[in-house]
Amino acid sequence: MKPFQCTFEAIGTVWVIDVFDALSRTDQEHIISQVHKRIEEYDLVYSRFRKESLVSTMARKEGEYTMPKDAKELFTLYRKLYDISEGAFTPLIGNVLHDTGYDAEYSLKPKEVIRPVPTWDATFDFRYPKLIMKKPAILDFGAAGKGHLVDQVGRVLELSGISSYCVDAGGDMLYKSLTKEPMRIGLEHPANPKQVIGVVTVENGSICGSAGNRRKWDQYNHILNPHTRTSPTDILSVWVLAKKTILADALATALYFTSADQLSEQFEFEYAMLYKDYSLRKSDTFPGEIFYK
């Protein structure tokens, strides 16, 4: 009975799940199938890349929709960040992503007119479990959905009695260790994936990174400012550590548009931001080491 690791592709990224508790083979197989089930279930609601998903239906038709239980946390956080960022952090970025070419077919060809982003209140109303789409819109939960799902997968493991594990979805991860064994995580150099610019130590919690170096096309990357409808160029990478992956993931995007001080008033997190000139700004108690020139 050894700790085990499982690697697979889902929701467009590579997942690596490590379980450090001893488990029997049967248990391992059972847990992994539960994990796959949870991911599929989530994807069928929130993925705008799947025609049969709930959000794809919302993009075609207004009306009243019943949301699953997990929507509460996701929409609450989105709304909070929407307000703090004055609308910059919004699920309604979906239309812009679509128009710039980051669509379900990955056309990567920007349309001639990039439509402006509608406001939250004019488009939909969320009162759990009801979501009322006042008009059809492409909702995109890319800024927090993956982190949210990582937390959900963590919960699946915990419900199976696992206490020490790491759920890593393409570099956004949740790590829990009963014995508080520190995990060393490198901060990827945005221009060279074979290098890191620092190391953070995580004992129990999440780390998420956000950078425009991989998903880029034309003059865009997947981080888009809804007001200017352009991708920010002054920040190369952002890393956030928080208790929950949903928060770490969301803030790693929110920091592109909102000041760290403003976000610190509302949330508990640590961060590091790498700028275009390779200078770095980080929280005072950032638990890691940065390599300076």
């Binding site: 990224t13 393409g170 570099g171 490198g186 990827e188 290098q195 300076y292 020139k293």
Partner: peptide
């Protein structure tokens, strides 16, 4: 102060975090 990169194989690491691997 500017940061510099160090090769991953020179440092003892468990994981690396950056932008997510793209689909």
């Amino acid at each position: 102060t500017q940061v510099i990169g160090k090769n991953i194989d020179e440092i003892q690491l468990t994981k690396v975090s950056g932008s997510s691997l793209s689909p």
